[in-house]
Each structure stands twice: as C-alpha cells, then as structure tokens.
Design a binder for these strands. Sequence first.
DNA 1: CCTGGAAACGTAACCGATAACGATTGCAGT
DNA 2: ACTGCAATCGTTATCGGTTACGTTTCCAGG
Lengths: 353, 353
Amino acid sequence: MAEGRAPITMSDVARAAGVSTATVSRVVNGHYGVSASTTAQVRSAIERLGYESSLVATSLRRSRTNVLGLVTHSFQSYTAEVLKGVMQALRRSGFDLIIYANSDLYGTYSEGWEQRHLTRLSGTLTDGCIVVTPWGDVQSRTPVVAIDPARDSTMPSVTADNLAGATTAVEHLLGLGHRRIGFIAGRSSLAAAWSREEGYRRALAGAGVPIEPGLIGRGDFNPESAAPLARELLKRPDPPTAIFAASDGMALEVLEVAKDLGLTVPGDLSVIGFDNIPESELTEPGLTTVDQSMYQLGYEAARMLKSLVTGDWEGPRQILLPTSLVVRGSTAPPRTHRTRHPHLAAQISGHTR
Amino acid sequence: MAEGRAPITMSDVARAAGVSTATVSRVVNGHYGVSASTTAQVRSAIERLGYESSLVATSLRRSRTNVLGLVTHSFQSYTAEVLKGVMQALRRSGFDLIIYANSDLYGTYSEGWEQRHLTRLSGTLTDGCIVVTPWGDVQSRTPVVAIDPARDSTMPSVTADNLAGATTAVEHLLGLGHRRIGFIAGRSSLAAAWSREEGYRRALAGAGVPIEPGLIGRGDFNPESAAPLARELLKRPDPPTAIFAASDGMALEVLEVAKDLGLTVPGDLSVIGFDNIPESELTEPGLTTVDQSMYQLGYEAARMLKSLVTGDWEGPRQILLPTSLVVRGSTAPPRTHRTRHPHLAAQISGHTR
DNA sequence: CCTGGAAACGTAACCGATAACGATTGCAGT
DNA sequence: ACTGCAATCGTTATCGGTTACGTTTCCAGG
C-alpha cells in the first residue's frame, strides 16, 4: 500500500553491511570471491532492507538478463492463446517474460511498430524477442522469432501450415459433394490470409471446379466484417451450399446469419472455419474447423527463442506447424434437391436458444 | 532478420550530426535551446541511422517514462479479459504497457511474487503498476492499483461486488422455488471466493433456509476441480435441485457432469455460475450467471492508475463494480415431483452434440 | 566599439548496477 | 623473514541517456 517510499538501492545495502557495492553485487549474483562471513552480513542486510535488484540497471550493464520479450500491437483472443503457450514453454526455465504493447498513439497503427518496440526493448532489457504478426522483417541485436510473419519474411519464425489446412478444409467440403463453395477471406496484408485463400483456390482447381469471383467475400479476420458478406453470398440467386470462412470468428458470424435467414446448418448450408478457437466447440451445431493451435504457435516460438538465446538451437529456423481438420456438426453433404422451409428445418436441427 | 547488429545509440547520432549527445537529447525530447538548423541536422541523422531511444537508459535517469506496468502470476482467460480492458483504457493515452509475468521458478508460486516483481519494475521502468490478484499489500515508489486484492487490503483497488452478485444469484434460485441449493466454492485464499460464499450463506439465511454443509463443495476456481465435487453432490440420496458454482469455468463442468449422469438442465437441475465468460453464452442451454465484466475491471483499474500517476484522481481509492444477473436457459423452477427419466429428459431438451 | 544578456551548445556528473582491474590480506613453503 | 599465490574486497570505467552548469556565440543597445 505504501507509496512514495524511496527504493532501496545496492548502495543502501552496501552501506548497511559495511562493504562496497561490488561485494553486494557478487553476493547477489553468487560470484566467486566473498568470504562466508561477509556473505552472511550482506544477506542479512538485503533481508532487513528488503532489497530487490533493479531490472533496469542490471540490464543496462549486463548482457544476459534472463528476460524474454514479446511485442504485440493489439490484444485479442488470438494473442491470449499464444501467450498461454509462451508461458507454458517458459515454466521453470528461469526466463521471465515481458510483454510490450503500445497504446496506439496514432489511431490506426503506424507501420514499423515492431521495429520501434523491438529497438526500445532489445537494446538491453531482453535477451530475445517474439514478435506477433509483424508486417515486415526487423533488425535486432538479440534473437527474434516471429509468429505469423509477412509472406516473404526470412526471419526465424513459427507459422501454421495455412495452405495445407485450407486445402484440406475445402477438400472436405468437396468430398461431401459440395461444388458451389463460398469463401470469406481475411485481411489481405497478412500472410495467413493469402495462404488460406490460395488453399481454397488450389483445392477447387484440383477438383476441376471453376472459381467464381462472386463467391469470394473480402473480410478482414474481424468477426463483424463477415456478417454482411455472408448475407450477400446467401441472398444470391444461386447461393453456395457451403461457406469456408478464413477464421472461426468470421465462421461463427456466418452461423448467425444463416440462422437469421432461416437456413439450417448443416442441412441447408455447411460452414467450416479456421483456427479452432474454444468457442467453436460450444456452438450448436459444433463448428467444423481447421485446428492451428495458437497455443502451440506460442509454445514453439518460445521454445525456439529460448534455444536461440542460449545458442543451442539445432532445428530449422522456420517452423511450419501442421494443421488438422476437426469435423463437427456444421458440415454435411448438400441436399440433392435444395429446398428451403425454415419451419421444417428448425424441426430437424432441434431447438436453439 | 538481421541479428547481431549493434544498436544505434545517442552518441552515434551525435557523431553523425556533429553535435553533443546533450543536444540530441534536447531535440528528441523537444526541449528548449536548440536552433532550427541544428534541430534539422539532428533529425536527419536520427532518420538516417534509424535511431530509437532505449527505454532502459531513459527510465534510469528520468522520473516519468510514460509506461505503465502490470504484473501477474499466471496467464488465463481471466487475465486476458482484464488485459483487453486495460488496453482499451490506455488507447491514445500516451502510456504504453509493460506486462511482467514470471516463469514460476519454484514450481508453485512463492508468496511475495507481487512485491518482488513490482520492485524490479517500479524502481524506474514504470510510472505505476496494476497488480492482478495479489495475496497481500505491496509497497512501491509509484502508484499501484490492485485488481481483486486480498480481503483486508487497504491499497487502491478495483473489485467486483462479489457479495451482492452471489446473493442475487442465490436469490434468483430461491425465487424460482429452489430450497436445496448446492454450492461449489472457489479457492479460499482469495477474497473473491470468500465473498461469493458469504453471499450464498446470506441469501439462504435471508430466506430462512438452513445451510447444509453437505451441500458445499470445496473447489479452487479451476474447472477441473469442480467435476468430482459436482458428481458427489448429485449422487447424494437427497441431491440439490440447483447448484451455484463460484465461477463459470466450474459451472460448465457441472453441466458436463449433469449430462453424463443423464440429468437434464434445467429440467432436473438448475445451474448458475459467476463471471460471464464468453463461453457461457454458447453452451446449450446457455448458462445463467453473474456478470462481473473482467474487461471492466481492467478498464477501471487502468483509468484509475493513469489518474493516480498524473495526480488528478478525485474518486474513491477503492472501487466496487456492480455485478448483474444474466438469466439464460440453465435455470428454471424445480420439478414439483422430482422424477428422473434420462430418455424422457433428452427428448425435452433437444439433441446434443 | 564595448557591454550585457539571452540563446545555443558542450562538459561532466549522475541514475543503479556490473566487471575488469588493482590493491590488500592471509597463509603456506622455503 | 621473504617470496608467491590465492582469496578477498575496493576502485573505477562503463552501459545510454538526462540535466545542472559552464562556456561560447551572437545581437541589440548604449
């Protein structure tokens, strides 16, 4: 509770123990060259005064700080999952974590934030950094691992195999017999969005199904962006029998829109997402999706960074994590003869909240 | 991508611009006493070299850093929601955020982590800190705001009105006609857990319903802890007709257990939670719960801290945020004549995944 | 031309800690 | 007693940036 108390510095301890700051430093860091009795004296003074070394001062002088950094622009469910993985990888590792997030001073985020944040931290404070979804490559004195970097990035990174995942998703729909498959894309500036769209195109091409530009909606990974696009797709004279959304958040919106329009899922429309966020398991019906384990992304990135810092990394510097199809209730074969009777449909699908 | 590049320091800029570091500092901080032409020279050098001031070095010398800190022990859904609120409150405020999380070096967390982390940061790096669920009070040179502090804490804090919320929840059940109401408690060391249990007791006492110790299970807020407790409660010869769980995570487990036992919700059993996490809206039926807006907790804590730092805080130093009952499908009046026919129940509640 | 004073800029102390280095002490070996 | 080597500990430069203070420059006013 107390505020305004001047912080205890190393020289306070030194004075109390009757030694120099150098000796205190040696005791604190367990270095060689301090007698047992002096050590005890210093320890006692530290205890008595409640001294704790300043992270800032230490990092300024030292090369290793045993603190890893993570810089991110915004803070969303995605980021939270990643963080859980990072923390798990860091448990009992001796590394602490510092997350740096900016307050978005310029309204929309100005390009180059990754580099600016990184420079401010990486100067001395951290031994290495994880950067979440950077737009471009960055330079740093210490190792950096990117999660979901830009498409042409050459930095060490961890990415989900978005291309394979998206291909599998669309092939799943094709295998069920769908031929008219809509797509709601993500923010085009991100590599993940590009890969998922490319997977959609390749799967269709592989099955000899022509690509209709009219069946592709341009979203931005934001759930809200998906609703109008889904509405547009489903109100066409020749609507798709299935929709693949580039993220679960957007797919859940598609489910809502379908319900609003009186369409049953998966009876009238199959829906498939990407990400496998926790919420996708709880809807009725459950959302078929592609699991990319954001938790795993964070976990692997932290593991890699740890090793890069200690210098014992053997594996590849660009990791592609596998994705897997999670089939739940939102996908099924299309109706051979498509009819639409909302009241009938509701009866089949069971009541909803 | 590039690694190992020596960071650009202020003296590099000074050399390039042909001035002293003092002048560069003045330009960077917009201080008085630099001619327009010199300013231009320095600016150009900064641009050319890509200089960014070191957070560490700056904070060591300066009192204000425009960085707020948040220290937390673990990283869960709760923390993530709080963080979203904090970030929102900090948008365009000019304050950046640093989150410090430890790597749990000692297995289970050692008491006093709040104080240790705080001291390390608060020495110089941050202008103030938010501490999430501290066990005890802390001392700091700079302002500190606690979220969900210990019961007898006197530090500035933001807490949800757990007592009123829990009372309302149980009164809701009583109003529906329930008299045998089970309770699954949270970790007793946390103030929130104590308040919620107290609310349970007061509501029952207020209605003249005797408290049965056998209807109280001792959980720890962890979802996994709730399943065996729920099972135990429901297998009693005289099972409760409703269960109030001290957190949504635990309440969701109760729903699972009920399903396993062939009980329908809310037909055979009413379930009510606390927190209103996003998942609670998506279950079938939706979970009736008490909303405490963890987002709001974070938002208010950040707003308060900001003002404490700038010295213009007028309001009370201990904020109690209101809670509200969110009624969804998991609560209903008890069966007057309780019967248990799983197949019959399934028919009523609709099919589940 | 001289002076005064403000503007412009450099010098150096300083923040808290670390580490290279030097200085002091203790003790064994001769 | 003297040398030599460890063990122990203090002194000081240093990290990158900030700021009090001192110095130089420049121009207006006399």
